[in-house]
Amino acid sequence: MKVTGAKTKEYKNSIEFLSDFGKDLPQIVFVASKESYEFEILAEKYKEAIKKSGEAFEIVIFVSEPGDFERFQSEAFNLDMFSARKLFIIKSGLEFFKPISGGKGKNNESLQKQFSNFPDSIQLLVHYNHWEVPAKVLQIFGGKVNLVKTKNFYPNETRGGLLQACKEIGVQLEEDAMDQFLHKIPPSMGAYLQSLSKLKLYLGKKTFTKQDIEDVLLFSGELNSSGLVDFFMESDRIRFFKELSKFQKGKDSLLLFLTILKERIDQLRKYKIISRKYEASLSDDEIYEYLDIQSYSPARKNFVRNRLKKEASFFSDKIVSELYDFLIEINIRIKTGSEKEESEFYFSRRMENFFLQLRRKDRIL
């Protein structure tokens, strides 16, 4: 936790926030996060806390439609003395607070004067669907905001974050299950909490195996971008295109696959440099740190190292270089919408070409 501005408190996830306040939840909370799962957890906690108080209350939800900001002002500052306690929930805060984040100085000064006297009978919970909340928005509440600013874990934080999430949900993972979970699940507290809750709900137990992770979290009729990358890096053409057949236009995005692939190629490139020039002079711990796997279990570290050794024999420097060019090109095509109808065909054709290169016996390493 850290303090920003005069009074604003910042928390790195919902668990840290809840453990700090317990039952006495603060009046104004912003959750800055691209995903909504942690925000929904806090919303439920607020609803439960108000119900337990026994007071009459009303929940008012704003979804950032035109006119919602003005309606919010009207409802917040025109209360009669007999009004019930209210919980204001604002979704899509990035759009909702645009009159402030994009506003001029004098207008914002007027709003700050008004909002700094926020009525005590109202609690405000905002999902700000971005990684950052502009200072302009926080300032109008006179430093009273508690900010839950969620970000992806760094590699050395994933295991600690998962243990924290397990404690919150009341479950345990066996060691190989934990390795599999960390390897496959996106590194954020929201993703960890959501996945653990799904395991507990589906299987009705508190200790989970690697097979449980694979059966509940990884087996799906939907496209698995992480698995798609695994099949490509293993040069398994049949399984790759079988998985790619699940791709659905308008629902799936190849951008997640490209992001994961770039991370794997970056790691492979580092390993190739280390194995050629520095492996004899570096300790195992130093190698693991350079590869960003220092937080993995000993078994997982050994697995990744062996996997990289195998991949290095398949992927020549020439192929790695071509992959970087491809990643940039297809990324631009997808994001700009150029040749939109042909993007999937182009992607498949280029991947087929890479598989042909990986199978050639005369690869130049």
Rank of each mutant, 00 (worst) to 15 (best):
F141N: 01
L223Y: 10
A177C: 07
M189L: 11
K113W: 11
Q172P: 05
F97A: 03
I287W: 01
I332N: 07
S83Y: 05
K242F: 06
E132F: 10
V320H: 06
K335F: 07
S275H: 05
E58A: 13
A76P: 03
D317T: 11
R360T: 03
E243A: 13
V60C: 04
V29K: 02
K318C: 03
E279P: 00
L308M: 08
S297I: 04
S281I: 10
L218G: 02
E352I: 01
I287A: 11
A49F: 05
D252V: 00
I100M: 10
G337Q: 09
S36V: 14
K270I: 13
N107S: 12
V148A: 06
K52A: 15
I328R: 07
M1L: 03
K86R: 15
S235P: 02
L199V: 12
R237M: 01
M233S: 01
K149W: 08
F231P: 01
F82Q: 10
Q248N: 13
P66R: 09
V216K: 02
S313Q: 14
S197H: 14
C166W: 06
R159F: 06
L261N: 07
K86V: 03
L79H: 04
R350E: 11
A76V: 09
Q172S: 13
S195G: 02
L111I: 00
V126D: 01
Q123W: 04
T8I: 11
K149P: 12
E263Q: 09
I274V: 13
L358Q: 00
D80F: 11
K361W: 02
S338K: 13
R360A: 01
R350H: 14
A165P: 15
N331L: 07
F314E: 00
K136I: 11
S101V: 06
R71T: 15
K52V: 10
